[in-house]
Every structure is written in C-alpha cells, then in structure tokens.
Design a protein around this nucleic acid. Structure first.
Length: 483
DNA sequence: CGTCGGTTCGC
DNA sequence: CGAACCGAC
C-alpha cells in the first residue's frame, strides 16, 4: 500500500514547533502544508491592512522553514472548500488536519468544511494549537461560562494540565509531485502606498524571529515586566503579541520558556518572579478573551452589559479622524496614535490611554475605536481587541467601571516621565520643556514661541477640556447606569 | 489595569 | 506642607 498523504490546512498557526496538526500529519505519511487566503470567509472581520502586511512576511518565512525540511508551503486564494477539494483530487490526499480557531465566522466555516470532508470520506481532524484552555473546558460551578477574570484564571490553573510543547518534526515527507502554488505577491497582501515603510524597522515576522524575541524577553525584560510594561518610552513589554496572533509561537512555548528561565532565580519557594507572574497573567487574559468571544460571540458588535446598548455615544467623523491621525491636541494621545499608524503597534498602557480618551473624553463609540485598531494593529486579534475595548469602555465582562476615566496628563507623567516618547512621535513639540510638554496649552507664550510652537497651527489646540469632558461622560453614564 | 478630594500623618 | 491613605464616583 502506498504512503498516505495528509493536507495540513494552516491558518493562525504559522510555525513548525508545537504544531499538533503538522505533527500528526507527519507521523501519518506524506505532508502537504497549505495556506488558503479567504478573507471573504471572515465575516465582518477580514484581516486589516497591518495584519495583511504581517501575514505576507509570516508566510514567506514559513515557506523558508518548510524548505529546510525538504517541504514547502502551497499558497492558494479562493473558497476554502473548493480549494481543498481541488487539492484532494490533485494529490490523492486522504486526510485534512488543522488547528482550531475560535472566532464566530471561523467556527461556522470550519464546521461546514469538516462536515463536507467527512461526507466525502476524507479524514478530517482538528487540534488545539493556540490555547492553554479551550473555551468549553472551563465552567463555573453552576456550569456557566465565566465572566470575571480572577475566578476564571484560578479555575484554569486548578485544572491538571501539562503544558508540554511538541518539538518540530525533523523531516517532512513530500508528495511525489507538488500541487501548484500561487506566488506570494499574488495574494496582494502588502499595501500599495508606502504606509508600511517603518514596519520593516520595527518588526520581523516568522517563527525564528518570534523565538529570538521570546528568548530575549525571558532572559532580560521579564524580570522588570510588572513595572516596565507601563512605560511608553522604552520596550518594557514583550512585543510577542503579533507572533502569538499568527501562531508563530504557541502559548505553551511561551509558558515553558518563562517557567524555565524563572527556575534559574534563586531557589526560595520555587515561586516565579513578580515580573513572570504578571506576564503569565497576561497570557491568562488572552485565554479569558477567547473564552468570552466563544461564549458571547455577539460582543464583537454589542456590549456585553445590556444597559450600555442605550449609551448616548456621540457621532463625529471629524473628531474620529483627529483621534485616528493623532491630532487631538493631547500629546500623549497623539504620540500613541501616530506610533500606531507608523509601526502597527502601541504598548498596552497607551492603548488604554487612547481608548479612554475616545470613549470618555470624546464619547465616541468603542466600536469605532475597535475598527480602527483592527485595521492598523499588526497584532489585531478579534478576541483580545473586543475584550480590550469593552474593558476600557466599561461595558464588558469584568470591565473597568465606566467612571474610571484616565487623565491624559497624569498618565503621560507615569508612562513617559522624561517626555522622550512624546518628543519622538510628536516632533513639533520636541524642544518644549518637559514641564509644558504634556499640556502645551498651559505654557506661557514665550515658552511656546521659543519652541516654535503655534497652537492651532503647528500643533492642535486640545479638542476638549478634560475636566469638563470627564463630567459630561459621568453624566451620560448616570443616565444608563440603572436602566 | 483611576481620579479626585478629603483627611491624617510625619517632619 | 507635602506625602500617604481612604472612600466615592
């Protein structure tokens, strides 16, 4: 009998190590790794511009890694079902394996595909490649999904789970003849303007780069993570999020690397350091985000907390544009929004600052913020993005209470104590002394003149008075609070 | 994963 | 008189 052939349908698992679907396919016989670009099948959330940029480079890297094992990546574009059918026919493959996804549109599509494959007599099997705890495995005592993080995470950690990573296969057996593959450029993932110029200086996609970043993080940054992650002026966070989103790394690999490096810390009570503890809790928030998205799929559109469906959001296309382009007149907000546009990223602390500004100071809807992040973040992830926005807007599960309003000035003092971050991203304020940098409208005329700043000309006047805006937001909240 | 305004504490 | 602490929103 000839060696059986398996198609590995790759999606958000663009790696070779700790890759359950690939692993199982490799042990079965010949392997055909396939990526099908099918944005029409993603419902309301086809990949945004920054995500597509990342995807392009991640696919390029994956092909190189596969070629080192004597294999290659087959790229196609179109309807998943049609393409799988074509490939099954062309190659004589008798099985299709993949790692599961948890977004509502992907779940529906995957179900349909699986049923069709099984009906054709093809072996179709899915695996867990991207979560520590799949959403349906964790339930409250009342057999309901969790809506509060801390008990959720306790319940996760109380389960007897071994987070063991699988090694990458050492070789992959090729089919006698490779099916044709679309050249990468024909997926048309890169922007046609030069929007992405600075992405190249900031990021390197692909599992090998992800593993280097992880190693550097656990060796250096993680120790001070609990403090430094709130800093905008240097890299105190892990920056692993885009690698995790595309599955260039699995959470199991991250978990293992953090535990291993923390094991080197002086014995003591075999406890992890505080930085590692806080970091792994962030991995826990990602698990929680997937739990919520799975059990409450409507939250990508609607707030989880009912009363917020009547919240009187304002509407203003011009104000939204000012926020998007970093022209609010609040330097910390503008710095962060410009960093996002230029690099496809901002650290979590400034995400909270700009989100609070949009939803409280401007009272524009969190959905509009979520949509902008979706298009501009290289790590755009439906579960994390939805949770993050509902969290700051105060309308989600275990959210910050709505009355928690970030003060942009205080936040800037903490996140950017010397003003380096603002000076880098808002260069028109660069020579203004730190004392005035966070609130240029309070600077004496001669200070502004000396720094070459003309408010309303070289840099905008503040869009709102923060204290008035805060009061207005709290008043709006009062109206929906008890309804 | 707040802010604000109040009070108390310590020099 | 400022830092530290506390409760309300």
């Amino acid at each position: 009998m000839s060696t059986p052939t398996t198609i590995v349908w790759l999606r958000q698992d663009l790696r070779l190590a700790d890759q359950p679907a690939l692993r199982r396919a490799a042990s079965r016989g010949r392997v055909i790794p396939v990526y099908i670009y099918a944005p029409e099948e993603e419902g309301d959330w086809p990949p945004g511009g920054a995500s597509r940029w990342w995807l392009h480079h991640s696919l390029e890297s994956l092909d190189e890694q596969l070629r080192q094992l004597g294999s290659r990546l087959i790229r196609r574009r179109g309807t998943t079902q049609d393409i799988l059918n074509e490939l099954l026919e062309e190659t004589g493959a008798t099985a299709v394996y993949w790692n599961r996804r948890y977004e509502p549109a992907a779940i529906e599509r995957d179900k349909t595909v699986k049923a069709a494959l099984l009906a054709m007599g093809v072996q179709a099997e899915s695996f867990n490649g991207s979560l520590l705890y799949e959403p349906w495995t964790i339930r409250t005592k009342q057999d309901a999904p969790y809506q509060v993080f801390t008990p959720f995470w306790k319940a996760c950690l109380a389960t007897e789970t071994v987070h063991e990573s699988l090694p990458a296969p050492r070789e992959l057996v090729s089919p006698p003849k490779w099916p044709k593959s679309l050249p990468l450029d024909e997926l048309e993932l890169l922007p046609s303007n030069s929007w992405d110029a600075q992405f190249y200086e900031t990021w390197q996609a692909g599992a090998p780069a992800a593993e280097r970043r992880l190693r550097q993080f656990v060796n250096e940054t993680v120790r001070r993570y609990h403090e430094d992650r709130d800093r905008a002026d240097f890299d105190g966070s892990s920056r692993l999020s885009p690698h995790l989103h595309f599955g260039e790394l699995s959470p199991r690999q991250i978990w293992a690397a953090v535990e291993k490096s923390s094991g080197k810390v002086p014995a003591g009570k075999s406890k992890l350091g505080q930085g590692a503890e806080v970091f792994l809790k962030e991995v826990g928030w990602r698990e929680f985000a997937y739990h919520l998205l799975y059990h409450f799929p409507s939250t990508t559109k609607e707030p989880l907390r009912e009363q917020f469906r009547r919240f009187p959001w304002r509407r203003s296309a011009t104000e939204l544009w000012s926020w998007q382009r970093g022209q609010t007149g609040f330097p910390i907000v503008d710095a962060a929004m410009r960093q996002l546009w230029a690099t496809g990223y901002m650290p979590n602390r400034t995400r909270m600052i700009v989100a609070s500004f949009l939803t409280k100071d401007l009272r524009l809807s969190w959905q509009q913020g979520a949509r902008w992040f979706w298009d501009t973040l290289v790590d755009a992830d439906l579960a994390n993005n939805t949770l993050g926005w509902q969290w700051t807007a105060g309308c989600g599960a275990d959210a910050a209470p709505y009355f928690r309003v970030f003060n942009p000035t205080m936040q800037a003092e903490k996140a950017d104590p010397h003003g380096d971050y603002i000076r880098r991203w808002v260069p028109e304020l660069a020579t203004l002394p730190t004392k005035w940098l966070r609130e240029p409208w309070t600077a004496p005329a001669e200070e502004l003149a000396a720094a070459g700043v003309k408010l309303g000309e070289t840099y905008p006047q503040p869009m709102v008075d923060h204290h008035e805006a805060r009061d207005a937001a709290l008043a709006a909240y009062e109206r929906v609070k008890n309804s």
